[in-house]
Amino acid sequence: MFRNLKTGALVALVAGAALAAAPMADAQAWEPTKTVEFIVPAGTGGGADQMARLIDAIIKKNNLMKQPMVVVNKGGGAGAEGFLEVKNAKGDPHKIIITLSNLFTTPLATGIPFNWKDLTPVSMMALDQFILWVPADTPYKSAKDYVEAAKKAGPGKFKMGGTGSKQEDQIITVALEKQTGAKFTYIPYKGGGEVATQLVGKHVESTVNNPIEAVSQWRAGQLKPLCVFDDQRLVYKGKVTETMAWSDIPTCKEAGVDTDYVMLRGIFMAPSVTEEQRNYYVSLLKKVRETPEWKEFMEKGAFNQTALIGDDYKAWLQKEEQRHYQLMKEAGFLAPGK
C-alpha cells in the first residue's frame, strides 16, 4: 500500500498514464455506502467552490463513484463552519472537505479551536497561483514600476483589493509591503470575481487575484498581469491573449519585488477514518486528476499541478502551517492568545 502512496507522491506535473496503471486493488476494499457530502468552507462562486463543483461534475460525468455526491457550502465564519463540522464528524467516511488557505488563516486569525491536524489529509489537488494585476491602460510596464509609483504617491494612497480580511490576499499584500517598503491600503471584498471587477472599474489600483478570477478581463484587454507570486514562471505556453501566454508573465522575483505565495487546494476527511476509507478517496481523486476535463480546468486557471498525498502531503501542510504562523505574526494578524 505504501508503495502506491509513494508513487502518487511524485509531483504530477504530467499526470501520466503510468500513474493510472498503478495497481490500487487493496484501496478498493471500502466504498461509500450512501451519499457523500462534499463540503466547501466558502461561499458559492469562489475558487474553492468552482473546483469542488468541477470535481463533483467530473465524478458524475465519468461514473467514478457509485453513490451520489452533493456539494454543500458552509462558509460561515471564514470557513470555520465547514471545518468544525468535519472535525466533529469523527469517523464519518461520507464527508470530505476542500480547503483553501483559510485552513491555516481562520484559526490563527479568530482563535477558533481548530487545526488541520484535526482532519485527515487525503490529497492535495493543485496549488493556486496569485498574480499582481493592474488595469490594462495604466502606464506601469513592470511590477517594479508599479511599486515605485505606489511609493511615490505616499503611504496608503494606493489601494489593493482582495478577498476577505486577514486571509491570503492580505497576507500577500503585507509580504509585498515588507519586501518593497511600499504601503498600500488593503480593501477587503467578499469574493474574487467582485475584486477583479472593482479593479476594472478602477476603484482600487491593483489586486492579487488568482489567474482564473481575472483571466477573462485580461483577455478582454481590461487588466494586465505584472508578476506571478511564485518562485518559477507558470508552465502554460498556449497563448491566452494575442501576444501573451501564462508563461510570459515574469515571477515577482524577476520583476524585482521578491515575494512568493501559493495556495493549497486540497481535500481532507473527518478525523479517525480508516486507512481503507482514506485510500478510496485518494484513488478516486487521482482518477479525477487524470480526466481531460480536469486538465483543461488546470490550464484555464493556470494552476500549479503539484499533487501530494500521504506523508509528503502532511509534511507540506506542517511546513505551510509554520509559514502562515510566521507571516501572520509579522503582519500582526494573530488572534490574542495564539
Binding site: 455506502t33 450512501k34 451519499t35 457530502e37 451520489p68 452533493v70 454543500v72
Partner: peptide, 17 residues
C-alpha cells in the same frame, strides 16, 4: 434534490443514514 435531512435510528436501519 439530494438535500440531506436529519436522520435517526430508523433511517439507519434502512441503511440510509
Amino acid at each position: 434534490f439530494k438535500v440531506p435531512l436529519p436522520k435517526g435510528p430508523i433511517e439507519a436501519a434502512f441503511g440510509l443514514a
